[in-house]
């Protein structure tokens, strides 16, 4: 009856008018600023000298020596560094330090994605369960709108919130990076190493790809949180369990790593970096395998969350 866009508008109103949400934006801003100030004033990285080409050549020699004593995957790191250094010397691209607008943006945003995941877990959990704890669900569900649409609007508006937060984080990091380290650093090259080749890539596109990969974790954890919230109708429980799993997932995996079936655990499959520029968690795991496992988890979360939200009596 009423269109779905209206429901999204409602959920957005409820998310952004809450003071907790405003505080989340402030916290994220404060974290970026603090990181910027620490890097600016608290770290002493040697400045790049005009003599940088000689220095890179010296470093390459050193790396070759170290690499000769190694075998297998351990070599990769040095191979990549040598290739990138060669590329810089060849194309006359002066190296950058962490005190560069792009390097700062890259560091800050990749590290703060976890914070955004936590915030989005909180947003989706409260969006669903607070309706029950406040009793507003009784007025929400007596409209000519299906329960499925109500739940979907909550889920989608939480994902929209995550996108807004990511864009906010990117823009703020870039601005703070520029203000603290100078916008002159914008021309810094972004060198990528894939299959033995070095190439330059656009920073913005590169960052968006990074966020895209991290968003797989985000979507999985937010879906898990939404499911828990609609099963238990209790935000504290939903937030608690989801945050515990987000933070403790890797520890659980560590403990269980000697078992073969650990590869079917959610947390092992969420990091797709392992197939792009890393080594897979277990031999024989492929990108396709992980995507399939993730799809199965996703479908289970969605079905369970949906069943509990739409089929159960509202007794709040």
């Amino acid at each position: 009856m009423a269109n779905f866009f209206n429901l999204i508008q409602n959920e957005n109103m409820k998310i952004y008018r809450k003071s907790a949400t405003k505080i989340m934006f402030i916290i994220l801003f404060a974290l970026i600023l603090t990181a910027g100030l620490i890097i600016k004033f608290g770290t002493h990285e040697k400045a790049i000298s005009d003599n940088w080409k000689q220095e890179l050549i010296a470093q390459n020699k050193q790396d070759q020596k170290v690499m000769a004593k190694m075998s297998g995957n351990a070599k990769n790191y040095y191979q990549e560094r040598i290739a990138k250094n060669d590329y810089r010397i060849e194309h006359d691209l002066k190296p950058t330090t962490g005190k560069n607008i792009w390097n700062f943006t890259d560091d800050a945003t990749n590290n703060l994605m976890t914070v955004i995941i936590l915030f989005t877990i909180i947003v989706v959990s409260t969006s669903i369960s607070s309706e029950f704890s406040w009793g507003t669900i009784k007025l929400l569900l007596i409209r000519p709108v299906s329960r499925t649409s109500v739940l979907l609007s909550k889920y989608i508006s939480a994902l929209i919130y995550a996108v807004v937060m990511i864009l906010f984080m990117f823009v703020v990091s870039w601005l703070i990076g520029g203000i603290l380290f100078g916008f002159g650093g914008l021309s810094a090259a972004n060198l990528q190493y894939v299959d033995g080749h070095v190439f330059e890539t656009n920073w913005v596109v590169y960052e968006l790809k990074q966020y895209g990969l991290l968003s797989i974790t985000l979507v999985m954890m937010v879906t898990l949180a939404a499911m828990i919230a609609s099963i238990f109708r209790n935000s504290a429980l939903a937030i608690g369990i989801s945050i515990f799993l987000t933070m403790g997932g890797s520890i659980i995996v560590e403990i269980l790593s000697r078992f073969d079936w650990v590869k079917y655990i959610l947390f092992v499959n969420m990091d797709l970096h392992q197939y792009i520029n890393g080594t897979p968690f277990q031999k024989g795991m492929t990108m396709g395998f992980s995507l399939s496992v993730l799809a199965v988890y996703f479908i289970i979360f969605v079905i369970l969350g949906w069943l509990f939200f739409t089929k159960r009596d509202v007794a709040a």
């Binding site: 409820k14 003071s19 406040w134 009793g135 007025l139």
Partner: peptide
Amino acid sequence: VENPEMYKYL
């Protein structure tokens, strides 16, 4: 239904 619970912060 029972008390008219509304969104208090709106």
